[in-house]
Design a protein around this nucleic acid. Structure first.
Lengths: 147, 147
DNA sequence: GTAATTCATAGTAAATTGCTGGGGATTCGG
DNA sequence: CCGAATCCCCAGCAATTTACTATGAATTAC
């Protein structure tokens, strides 16, 4: 069970844009360089993030991306769901009505999947982009400690 | 990000063996029938679970599988890790020393991956096979309520 | 007008998933 | 001892997903 590069790179890109883009928009090239990622791939990820309304773009020369809206209201969950699709590792215990599972009647494993889904959702929904930005700044300033 | 069928089917198989196998060993055929899964695929899963010491097998006619050891000491985490490999959705924040990540110095996303990994580990390590067996029995008896 | 950018779509090699199949080894019941 | 029921091991394989790469057009600052 792994998070794909979309989620991993995409979150790094978002933090990069958030930290570096407070004044001027951040170009894909700049992100790619700093984060050591492929420009073309980043293009796709930022396209998805834009469609989801998490970043806005400025086209043309000197263009680039900036965070759309309030960083304190964007959660890691918002970002990862945009890039990875629903995060639920097991669907049969999702929020929708259960589908085709014959054994649902006496299926204790469903309880497990539900717990897993819940704890994951809780975790990602309670970390905001702003927190990550603040951490990054502190770390760059050399004053941040783990935990 | 999804849990594969190995984990999903495998956990169901374990619960099945635990519930049905207290007296006599449970054959793959029987599990396959009750759980509506492929016999050949189950063979593989049980092979893995056996190698990990979570079930024992009895060969020959009337043979089958039984839980090895104390059900209250087998966690869902033990089972899923056996079938899925390490559960960490993101490796760069695992328990090993970090490997090749250039940006580690100022990588706030690592904090996120760590939180995700921790919450997942906590969840699966704190549900035991015994709990699932008890739940299944109650559900079959019609007396189990959610939460 | 030209260089720097985003935007959209398509292609693709490699890995992973979710099985299926063949053939052997072991044990029980008669 | 025979035969049926079972576990055991390993190989193959089609479909899907992943992680990019490629091409080229549209837009804008200077």
């Amino acid at each position: 069970m792994k998070l794909s590069t979309k989620g991993r790179y995409g979150l790094r890109a978002m933090v990069d844009v958030a930290v570096a883009g407070e004044k001027a928009p951040v170009s894909i090239q700049a992100i790619a360089k700093r984060q050591d990622l492929s420009e073309k791939y980043l293009e796709q990820l930022l396209g998805m993030l834009k469609k989801a309304g998490l970043v806005k773009s400025i086209r043309g020369n000197q263009g680039g991306y900036q965070i759309e809206g309030d960083m304190a209201k964007i959660s890691v969950g918002d970002i990862l769901r945009t890039l990875e699709g629903e995060l639920l590792p097991v669907e049969c215990a999702g929020f929708e009505e259960e589908s085709s599972c014959k054994a649902a009647k006496s299926c204790a494993t469903k309880y497990v999947w539900k717990k897993i889904n819940e704890s994951l959702e809780y975790t990602v929904n309670h970390i905001t982009l702003k927190e990550l930005v603040d951490q990054t700044k502190s770390m760059q300033a050399g004053t941040w400690k783990e935990e």
